[in-house]
Design a protein around this nucleic acid. Structure first.
Lengths: 209, 209
DNA sequence: TGACTCCAACCGACCAGTTGGTATGTTTAC
DNA sequence: GTAAACATACCAACTGGTCGGTTGGAGTCA
C-alpha cells in the first residue's frame, strides 16, 4: 500500500500529483464518473504509477479525502483573521473568509469530500469514514474558537460549540449545492450571509458576560 | 422522446416505475454509479422498455428531476400545518415538517436533485437545468408564505422572501450531506433546529407591524 | 572513485467484465 | 389493423485492475 518513508523525506511526486488531480477532476465530474485513466492523464502519470501508489480506485478516494484535510488546515493558520485576539472576531472572520472564497468557477471552491459523500456514503464505507473524518476535523477545529466565544460572550440561546460548527459546515455544503444548481457562486454567498447574520444575532455583539 | 398523450390519461406504467426506481437507486448510489440495467431491474422492466420511454440515460435524469418536483408538491398541500391562518406558523410548520422527515435510512429522506447536481452540474447542462428548476420551484413556493410573514411581522433585518427560502433549502441540502457523512440523521436535525431558531429570531414572534 | 546490487518508482500493453445504446422482434390496447 | 408498449439478443467502447518489464538513485565494498 502506502510506501513507508520518513515524514521528513520529500513527498513522492506522482502520489501527490494523483491526489491533486483527483481533487480537481472529481470536484468537476464526481467520483464514479471519473475514471482512473482520467486522473492519471490529469496528473500526467501512467496507470502503472497509479496502481503502484494505490491498491484501488477506492484506496485513492480514501487517501484523497485525508489529503483534503491537510489542504484545509492552512485555512486556520495563515489568513489575517486567525491572529485576532477576540474569539468571536476569529469566528466571524472565518465566515468572511469562506464567503470571499465563493467566486470564480464553481468546481474551484466546492468541497471534495462533500462531493464524494453524495456518491459513496452507501456504497463505500471506507470512503464515507474518510470523508467524515475530514469534515469532523474541520468542525472540531472551528469549534475551538466558537467555544471561546461562548465562554466570553452572553448568549441565552441553546447552542453548543460543536453544534454551531457543524451547522456552519452544513450551510457551506448546502451553499455549494445551490451554486451548482445555478452554476453561479452568488446564491451561495447569500446563504453564507444568512449564516453570518444568525451568528451575530446569537452572540448579541458587545454584551460580554 | 416522451410519447405525446393527454394529461388526463392514466400514466404509462413502465415510465413511472422507471422514474420511481431512478429516485430510489440514484439517491443511494449516485447518478453515474447507477447503471441503466440496475434501474430497469429495480423497476422490474426490460431495457427495451427503458429506451422506449427515454432516449438516453441523460433524458431519464432530466425526466426524473421533473418528476421529483411533482413528488414534492404534496408537501405544500396535505400536511396539517399548510392550513394554518398565520403565514409564519405555516413557514415554521414547514420547517418542523422537514425536521420530522429526517429519520430512518439516510437514502430515504435525501434529495434526488441535490444528489444529481453534485455529479452533473458540470457534465450535463440539461440535467443541471432540470435540477435547478426543481429546486427553484420549491423555493418559490416556500417564498409565498415567507413573503406573507414578512408583510405581517416586524423584522429589522435584511431579508427577502426568496433569499430566506433559498437559505432554507441550502440548510436542508447541507444537512443531508452531514447525515451522509455520519450515516445518521441526527446531525441533520441539529442543523435544521439551528435554522428554525434563526427564523424565530428574525421574526421576533408576537411583534406585528 | 567506480563497478555492483537492490528496490521503490514508474511504464504501458493487455484482460475480463460492464457500460450505454441498438436492432429486431413480439405483445397489447383501441 | 395499426401503432404504441414492451422484450431479448447483441455490440463497440470503456472500466478497473494486472503483469512483466525498465529506470534511476541510494547503499556497499574494493
Amino acid at each position: 500500500m502506502t510506501p513507508i518513508r520518513p515524514l521528513s523525506a520529500p513527498p513522492i511526486s506522482a502520489r501527490i500529483k494523483l491526489l491533486d488531480a483527483a481533487h480537481q477532476v472529481v470536484r468537476r465530474k464526481g467520483y464514479a464518473a471519473t475514471s482512473v485513466d482520467e486522473i492519471c492523464a490529469a496528473a500526467g502519470v501512467s496507470k502503472g504509477a497509479f496502481f503502484h501508489h494505490f491498491a484501488s480506485k477506492e484506496a485513492l478516494g480514501v487517501a484523497a479525502a485525508e489529503q483534503w484535510t491537510n489542504r484545509a488546515a492552512p485555512m486556520f493558520e495563515f489568513p489575517p483573521h486567525t491572529k485576532l485576539a477576540d474569539p468571536l472576531d476569529r469566528f466571524l472572520g472565518h465566515i468572511d473568509f469562506r464567503f470571499a472564497m465563493l467566486e470564480g468557477p464553481v468546481a474551484d471552491f466546492t468541497c471534495f469530500v462533500g462531493t464524494m459523500l453524495q456518491e459513496s456514503f452507501a456504497t463505500s464505507d471506507p470512503i464515507r469514514v474518510a470523508c467524515d473524518a475530514s469534515i469532523s476535523a474541520y468542525c472540531e477545529r472551528l469549534a475551538v474558537d466558537i467555544q471561546q466565544a461562548l465562554d466570553l460572550y452572553d448568549t441565552t440561546h441553546a447552542v453548543t460549540a460543536l453544534g454551531l460548527a457543524r451547522h456552519t459546515q452544513a450551510v457551506l455544503q448546502g451553499a455549494f449545492i445551490m451554486a451548482k444548481a445555478k452554476n453561479d457562486p452568488e446564491i451561495a454567498r447569500d446563504s453564507v450571509a444568512h449564516l453570518k447574520q444568525y451568528i451575530e444575532m446569537l452572540f448579541k455583539r458587545g454584551e460580554t458576560k
